[in-house]
Simulated assay, not measured.
Amino acid sequence: MRAVADGLAALPPAEAAVELAEVERLVRERLLPHEREDDARVYPAVERALGGDDPIAAMHRTHREVHRLGGLLTRMTIDLPPEGLGPAAANDFRRVLYGLDAILRLHFAQEDELYHGLADAEHVALQAAAAGAGAGRDDAGRP
Rank of each mutant, 00 (worst) to 15 (best):
R41E: 11
L50A: 11
D53I: 01
A16S: 09
R68C: 12
Y43C: 07
G84Y: 02
G141A: 13
R48E: 13
H116T: 14
A89M: 02
E22R: 05
L8E: 00
P44S: 02
D112A: 07
Q110F: 11
G86C: 09
H67K: 09
D38K: 14
A16F: 06
L11V: 03
A14C: 07
R2D: 15
R28D: 09
L69T: 01
R68W: 02
L114Y: 03
Y98F: 12
A135T: 12
A3L: 15
H123F: 05
V23W: 05
L80E: 07
R142Q: 09
D92R: 04
A90G: 03
A3W: 14
A17M: 09
R68I: 08
A21W: 02
L118S: 07
V4G: 11
E37V: 08
A21Q: 09
A135Y: 14
R36V: 13
E19G: 02
A16T: 08
R94T: 05
P13M: 10
V27M: 02
L31K: 03
G84W: 01
L97C: 13
R137P: 00
V42N: 11
V27N: 00
R36G: 10
E24T: 14
G117V: 04
P55M: 13
A133C: 14
R75E: 11
A90K: 00
R30C: 06
P44M: 02
H123D: 04
I78M: 03
R2V: 11
L85R: 03
H107Y: 15
D112T: 10
L73A: 02
G84I: 04
P55H: 09
A88P: 00
I56C: 10
E113K: 05
D120G: 01
D54W: 07
M1D: 13
A45P: 03
D54H: 12
A58S: 15
T77R: 05
V18W: 00
D79N: 12
A119W: 00
P55D: 06
D39M: 06
A17F: 04
R95V: 06
M76I: 04
A140R: 15
I56V: 15
L80G: 11
T62G: 06
A131M: 04
A10N: 05
L97Y: 02
I56H: 02
E15P: 00
L100W: 06
G52E: 09
